[in-house]
């Protein structure tokens, strides 16, 4: 991704030179600069236009996906619909990918990103995050007959299954170097390994292990929350104060009607069950410690 960004920067420079050579930069970039137009649309501009453009995932069930009628659905979309309604405008959904969410905001091609966007310090440099509406961390699932309820339950000689390159692998390697890891490249391999008893437990994102335990009988999530909590929040273009404030106020207001709990029950309960609602949902932007 870093390398990709460097290439991109170099190319932007090359294109700039080409544009100057072609003599067209004079008119267009000046017009762009002198008008002092920002890339984003303010709250008033959005309301005036009658539509809000919201970037969502179209293939990440149950957060953002498209149903068989071509309608966007999911936890993020449920929230997006409410935002549009309370703004008094129509929602226009743009299908985004994990890799282009920041670009969409920085070029103002969408007003809001609601695509399971985890808040990180790095991303805060590029976009402005509103209050969170969900929280995720790591989780550990293990067989019913020998549930691992804390990392202390893991005995010498026991191995913990992880998928290479995931947060779980990094976290355990850094914070619990004494725990032996059994690494796999793909989800399916890790799943088979757990079912064959090749490890005492499987550590992964808690949403993943929760969904797994729900779908496979005989397994329990003994540790639903491990390590630091990550929050998921809406994001807007950097500097779009009016829209950011409005979204923050909206999230606080929605807390009064327990909106995100309702949202969870409508969209996530099928996948994660009711037991983990409090673990995952963040109401009024307040993350429980």
């Amino acid at each position: 991704m870093k390398k990709f960004k460097r290439i991109f920067a170099v190319l932007t420079a090359v294109m700039m030179i080409v544009a100057v050579a072609a003599g067209c930069s004079d008119t267009s970039s000046n017009a762009y600069n002198t008008s002092k137009k920002t890339v984003y649309r303010t709250l008033d501009e959005i309301k005036e236009s009658g539509t809000v453009k919201i970037g969502v995932f179209s293939d990440k069930n149950p957060f953002g996906y498209v149903d068989e009628n071509g309608e966007y659905q999911g936890y993020d979309v449920y929230f997006a619909k409410r935002l549009a309604k309370d703004l008094g405008v129509k929602a226009e959904y743009v299908s985004t990918e994990a890799a282009n969410r920041i670009e969409y905001l920085q070029t103002g091609k969408v007003d809001i990103i609601l695509a399971n966007f985890t808040v990180t310090d790095e991303r805060k440099e590029e976009v402005d995050f509103a209050l969170p509406y969900m929280s995720v961390s790591l989780g550990v699932v293990s067989p019913d007959k020998k549930v691992i309820k804390s990392l202390n339950d893991i005995k010498d000689g026991d191995e913990v299954i992880v998928i290479s390159g995931t947060t779980a692998e990094t976290y355990l390697t850094e914070n619990h170097p004494d725990i032996k890891l059994k690494k796999f490249d793909a989800y399916a391999q890790a799943k088979t390994a757990l079912e064959n008893g090749e490890g005492a437990a499987w550590a992964n994102d808690n949403t993943e292990v929760i969904a797994y335990a729900l779908q496979n009988k005989g397994y329990t999530v003994g540790i639903p929350s491990l390590g630091s909590k990550d929050t998921i929040a809406p994001a807007v273009s950097k500097g779009n104060k009016t829209l950011l404030n409005w979204i923050n106020n909206e999230i606080k207001a929605l807390g009064k009607e327990k909106f995100f709990h309702k949202n969870y029950e409508k969209t996530l309960a099928d996948t994660y069950g009711k037991d983990y609602e409090e673990q995952l949902v963040v109401e009024s932007g307040k993350v429980k410690k």
């Binding site: 932007t12 670009e103 920085q106």
Partner: peptide, 26 residues
């Protein structure tokens, strides 16, 4: 050479996002 070296995805990003960044074209 540009075409040969540059992944098509980078070109897509440049044309779709880059033109907006530089010229405000949408």
């Amino acid at each position: 050479e540009i075409v040969r070296i540059m992944p098509q995805m980078v070109l897509l990003f440049i044309v779709f996002f880059g033109t907006t960044r530089m010229f405000g074209l949408n």
